[in-house]
Design a protein around this nucleic acid. Structure first.
Lengths: 151, 151
DNA sequence: TATTGTTATACTCTATAACTATA
DNA sequence: TATAGTTATAGAGTATAACAATA
């Protein structure tokens, strides 16, 4: 009987931490996007909503700096959230003095963060707690200390 | 003297591993994209080029399955690499029997992978070796065992 | 029938440039 | 002058649907 095994495809990229980071991130974001779609939110919209909910009166520019999103990209996203009644834009004398969530927006932020937490839990389940914590800290160290200017 | 400290923006997202994964991945990919631009390649083009170089005769469908890219998206990318003379499309009787790199494509694949390795090294430098290895394995476990069907 | 390759199309996210208005 | 907000625009990556050709 002929048992010639077909040669497996070799993938040199798998040795690269950057590649592994991208594949893992893609999977996590794809499943999260699916779950958030039930709330009618995209991932970036959700991150803005949650940040506004935790920082009443925050400026769009500060949202951008905190989340790593350009000012120019925050504008239409914030406008969409406002149009949907999830975010309120307080103004004083014609100039903006920051964003805050409406009652409905606050409710949605709570639910969205629960979905995020659940998504995390279901995906990182198989890693033991000490490794999860080490990764959390290592990843934060990576991008936060790189003094990454958004613009 | 008044020393009222301004309240720092609180970011609840930082507790989420998924968020940290995305921020770190974004940084790594952004710096990699910058460096690969010197070769006139995008990240996805590069990943395809390297995979073809390591698997002479590979089919586009297999490229898609291995890298997590849809067949429909591999097509124009492979066509562009072929147009530039980096990848050769062998055919037999009108039907494709797989892709391989040209001499120039092979050269470029070597240089691109060196850039990737260097990008990895410069960014993950501050993590000690055991942690880097643990992360590499943990991330691979994450997306590879999730039986993620590309289509 | 299942797989491969292709085209068309749309969406998400990110990037730059240029403009206005305000502190 | 520096910061904030906006609009327009482009590019990279990914998604689905539909079709033709082949094993």
């Amino acid at each position: 009987m002929s048992t010639i095994s077909k040669a497996r495809t070799s993938n040199p990229l798998e040795d690269h931490l950057g590649y592994q980071l991208r594949r893992a991130s893609s999977l996590v974001m794809a499943t999260l996007a699916d779950r958030l779609a039930d709330l009618g939110l995209t991932i970036v919209e959700t991150s803005i909503l949650i940040l506004v909910d935790a920082n009443s009166g925050i400026f769009q520019s500060e949202i951008g700096r905190t989340l790593g999103i350009k000012r120019a990209n925050v504008a239409p996203l914030a406008a969409a959230l406002e149009r949907r009644g999830l975010v309120l834009r307080s103004t004083s004398g014609g100039r903006s003095i920051g964003l805050s969530t409406s009652a409905e927006g606050h409710e949605l932020a709570i639910r969205a963060e629960a979905i995020m937490k659940d998504n995390d839990r279901s995906l990182f389940d198989r890693l033991d707690a000490p490794l999860r914590l080490a990764m959390l800290q290592a990843l934060a160290l990576l991008w936060r200390t790189d003094a990454a200017p958004v613009e």
